[in-house]
Computed example of a mutant assay.
Amino acid sequence: MAWEALAVSTGVVALAEMGDKTQLLALLLAARFRRPLPIVAGIVVATVLNHALAGAVGAWLAAHVSPAWLRWGLGLSFLAMAAWMLIPDKVDEDDVRIAPRWGVFGATALAFFLAEMADKTQIATVALTVHYAAPLAVVAGTTLGMLLADVPAVFVGDRLARRVPMRLVHGVAAAIFALLGLATLLGAGVSLGF
């Protein structure tokens, strides 16, 4: 179960991140600072902290909310995520204008942490943690998925972004979330307690 949680979390978040505002933020930070290593380090720290927080919320929900409510809430969350995947993200230039005194690492970590608050991948981390009841595997997977999408953006910039068909990628991610939602609503995982 932990391997499945890790694999699904990694794949879904890597797909969800393609064209997401944090990937766009990575592109902007790379263009502005042109120092990939502190940018990548800032992304790693912010993502681990943000997704660990989301994993903790998911674990708390799984422990304190009745299985019937969890099943319906989780199924509807996945369906909402599917719809949300079809809405293109934009990044505000102000997200990159963090005070220079923070340095490249600090500016990146702060900008990424704030950009991820209540973002698709943070909410997906909560939902996947509830679904799989394997918070460490889910947080590792969602973090790895974020890094798979965002780190290449730091190094190859928008040359890669222009070649990837974002509508197709977002459509695949939306389909995966929709399948997870329908499976949950139709009773998949009932033997797991929800």
Rank of each mutant, 00 (worst) to 15 (best):
M1H: 09
M1V: 07
A2Q: 12
W3D: 07
E4M: 12
A5Q: 09
L6R: 05
A7M: 14
A7C: 12
V12N: 01
L15A: 12
A16L: 02
T22P: 01
Q23W: 03
L24V: 10
L27A: 12
L28V: 00
L29D: 06
R35I: 00
I39S: 07
L49E: 09
N50C: 15
H51K: 10
L53I: 14
L53C: 12
A54H: 07
A54G: 11
A59M: 11
W60D: 12
L61C: 14
A63H: 10
H64I: 01
S66H: 15
P67G: 15
A68T: 14
W69F: 14
G73Q: 00
A82H: 04
W84A: 04
I87A: 01
K90Y: 05
V96S: 11
V96M: 05
P100G: 11
T108E: 03
A109F: 04
L110Q: 10
A111W: 01
F112I: 10
F112Q: 09
F112R: 03
F112G: 03
F113A: 14
L114Y: 06
E116H: 04
D119I: 02
A127R: 01
A127L: 11
L128S: 06
L128C: 03
L128Y: 03
T129R: 04
V130Q: 05
A133D: 13
A134R: 14
P135T: 08
P135Q: 10
L136A: 14
V139N: 05
T143N: 07
L148C: 13
A149S: 14
V151M: 00
P152N: 04
P152Y: 08
A153F: 06
A153I: 07
A153G: 10
F155W: 15
G157N: 13
D158H: 05
R162W: 00
V164F: 05
V164L: 14
V164Q: 10
L168V: 15
L168D: 00
H170E: 09
G171Q: 08
A175S: 12
F177L: 01
L179G: 13
L180D: 01
L180E: 01
L180G: 03
L180S: 02
G181D: 08
L185M: 07
L186H: 02
V190W: 13
L192I: 06
F194Q: 04
